[in-house]
């Protein structure tokens, strides 16, 4: 038992340590430039716009961005205002991958014909889970199959949040949305399992596929930098906590990202030239109930449904561990 006197001295020690740290040291490997300006109209605590901020910081100014209709488009571009400090185009909902294909092909031809400056320009396409896994699925598949050198980023907040929280194929089993409400007939709310878009992207045989989450910003930025370097298409699937749609307090947006990863609900992994690799492997997964707790969209789940989800999450995690050879590591 520590005495009161001991406690005071501990506090003094801590304060002395704090004194030492008082100088702000510049962040290493973390660009200070902002490419999405303040003044955007995202909801309070939006982790999706945070993900966008980190993605753009990692890529830097030499880029062109094509964006699908959705939250990030609406919050950033009410004419005559724009939040973007990088060249940006929005055409429609389902075609960010195709518009980016046109941007890439056009710049490629013009560079070859010496009609634009001879410099590398990264092409970024971005859509939400609806714009990627549902309505933009075909355009994305085409982009990946044709081999365009484009980074496609899906910012996944697990429902159509922009239109008022409707279910998508990326909404997880057990989550309620306005079109997957829980009731006697559909006790889980969403009665289907989340489409595994990352595995589908990897199945296209593209050079680089990964999952990421802004809570793990270093991992996220590292993956974007990797994607930037590969010759050909890359696909990054980013879990983006949506306080409005998930019904969680805005200040907890980062914490829920942590819990999603620590429970195995959203594992961080990458597939590089066909090699699967787990990027974060906790010694023991936390139970999914810890992730569900406090999320309004999961409030209706009983023990039986939670156990059913736990089983599925554990099985998928084990498969991932096996695929990545992590089970053979010491």
């Amino acid at each position: 038992m520590a005495s009161v006197a001991n406690g005071v001295s501990m506090m003094e020690k801590k304060m002395a340590e704090t004194e030492k740290k008082k100088v702000i040291k510049p962040l290493k490997n973390f660009p200070m430039e902002e490419y999405i300006n303040s003044g955007h109209r995202a909801c309070q605590g939006c982790a999706e716009v945070l993900a966008v901020r980190h993605v753009l910081k990692a890529i830097g100014p030499d880029m062109v961005m094509a964006m699908a209709t959705g939250c990030m488009e609406i919050i950033s571009s009410p004419y005559p205002y724009t939040s973007w400090n990088v060249p940006w185009i929005h055409v429609a909902f389902e075609n960010a991958a195709a518009v980016a294909s046109g941007v890439e092909s056009g710049l490629k031809a013009l560079r070859r014909k010496k009609r634009v400056p001879d410099k590398d320009v990264t092409i970024l396409a971005m859509g939400g889970d609806g714009g990627t896994t549902d309505i933009g699925f075909q355009a994305l598949s085409g982009m990946m199959e044709r081999g365009h050198k484009i980074i496609y980023v899906c910012v996944d907040n697990e429902a159509y949040m922009n239109t008022g929280i409707q279910r998508s194929s990326s909404t997880p089993f057990g989550a309620t949305t306005t079109t997957s409400p829980a009731g006697k007939v559909a006790p889980a709310g969403q009665m289907t399992w989340k489409k595994d878009m990352t595995a589908i992207a990897a199945a296209h045989g593209i050079p680089y596929t990964a999952t990421a989450c802004p809570t793990f910003f270093n991992d996220l930025q590292k993956k974007i930098l990797k994607a930037k370097e590969v010759q050909g298409p890359s696909y990054i699937h980013i879990l983006s906590v949506c306080p409005t749609g998930w019904r969680v307090p805005p200040q907890k947006a980062i914490e829920y990202g942590q819990l999603a990863v620590d429970t195995g609900v959203f594992p961080l992994y990458e597939v590089e030239n066909g090699i699967w690799k787990l990027n974060r492997k906790p010694k023991e997964l936390k139970p999914v109930s810890e992730y569900f707790k406090g999320q309004g969209r999961y409030r209706h789940l009983d023990e039986k449904l939670t156990a059913e989800i736990q089983e599925k999450i554990t099985a998928r995690w084990n498969r991932l561990v096996e695929l990545s050879g992590a089970d053979k590591e010491s």
Binding site: N95, A97, S101, G102, V103, L107
Partner: peptide, 22 residues
């Protein structure tokens, strides 16, 4: 020559390439 997977993407590719000045 971009052999797209649908006409929807054909017109979308055209928008992207025209936007870069091609």
């Amino acid at each position: 020559f971009v052999p797209v997977e649908s006409e929807h993407s054909a017109m979308s590719v055209c928008c992207g390439s025209a936007a870069v000045g091609a």
